[in-house]
Simulated assay, not measured.
Amino acid sequence: MANTTIKTSITTPSKDQWIEGAARVGLTAKGIVYTLVGILTFTTAFKLSNAAKSGSKADVLQWIQDQPFGQILLGLTALGLLGYTIWRLIEAIKDTENKGTDAKGLAQRAAYLSSAVVYGALTFYAAKMVLGNGGDSGGGNDTRQTVAQKLLEQPMGQWLVGLVAVGTMAVGAYQIYRALSEKYRKKIKESRLDKNIKQLLISAGKLGYIARGIVWLIIGYLFLQAALQSDSSEAGGTSSAFGFLEKEYGSWLLGVVAIGLVCYGMFTFVRARYQPIHTR
């Protein structure tokens, strides 16, 4: 009996080990994408490189593919993004974070599900590129414009697009709130961080969440314009948001946001290493 008990205690934790592995690999892949988005956006904004048209996630995937051994690197990135997608789905469906079924909990789980959909689409796009069937790098914008167009075709379509706009801006505002309230720090076990770089990593996380929030706010604003003008071409993704920033406020502000996205990517690496991953 004692031997059975010991055996059970040893083997049980490994049952869901694949979920934790998928989460950590997925967070690493997400960190790579955001870091490259920030770097390529910064270099493009100041004409330091022509590596990307806009610094969108689709452009980043294209940049990875263009590197030596690009197909292999892109395939590994796609697998990482798939892991992230699966983890977010599990969080949404199994409620591994114990968010509950009240309004607040369901809203958080819906956010996990939304994240799974977004990164699932990015995984699919990366897989198509690996197989030689990838589209152009404007895919992110085209997808959002397609969504806006489909909604506009429905009864009360402008209101539906308006709701998407409000929801997207709410996500952006919440990202900034998480940064300023420092709630994002709950994502990691700070006690395990090296004391010499702890404050630098925490500050990077704050700047990163603010930058990400700004991008979400602009994407929401673009959807709002699509609703008000009943024109799906007004909607757009990250590349449109970057274009809006550069046009309205200049390359310097775009550069600051780009640096913030690099910081978000770096903090995501920290999450991949130090975030507690719940599997049940």
Rank of each mutant, 00 (worst) to 15 (best):
I210A: 03
L180K: 07
A148N: 04
K186S: 14
V161Y: 07
S203Y: 11
I210Q: 01
L180P: 05
Q175G: 02
Q149W: 05
K187P: 00
Y209C: 01
W159I: 14
I176K: 00
T168M: 06
Y184P: 00
Y174A: 11
Q149D: 15
I197L: 05
L200W: 08
E190Q: 12
S181G: 07
K187C: 03
A204N: 09
G172R: 00
L200P: 01
R192S: 14
K186E: 14
K198M: 09
K206Y: 00
K150P: 00
G205M: 01
E153N: 13
S181P: 04
K198H: 11
L200S: 06
A179K: 00
Y209L: 09
S181A: 12
K189I: 12
R178N: 14
I188K: 08
L160E: 14
Q199F: 10
M169K: 02
M169C: 07
G172N: 02
I188G: 04
K189C: 04
L160Q: 13
A170F: 13
N196F: 10
T168P: 07
I188W: 07
Y184E: 00
K183P: 01
G167R: 05
K150M: 08
G157N: 09
N196T: 14
G208Y: 01
V161I: 10
Y174P: 01
P155E: 13
Q154H: 03
G205I: 00
E153Y: 03
L152M: 12
V171G: 04
D194F: 04
R185Y: 03
Q175V: 03
W159P: 03
Y184V: 00
Y177E: 07
R185E: 13
E182V: 01
E190T: 08
L201M: 12
L201K: 06
K195T: 13
E190K: 00
K187R: 15
Y174C: 05
M169H: 04
K183D: 15
M169Q: 10
K198Y: 07
K183C: 02
I210S: 07
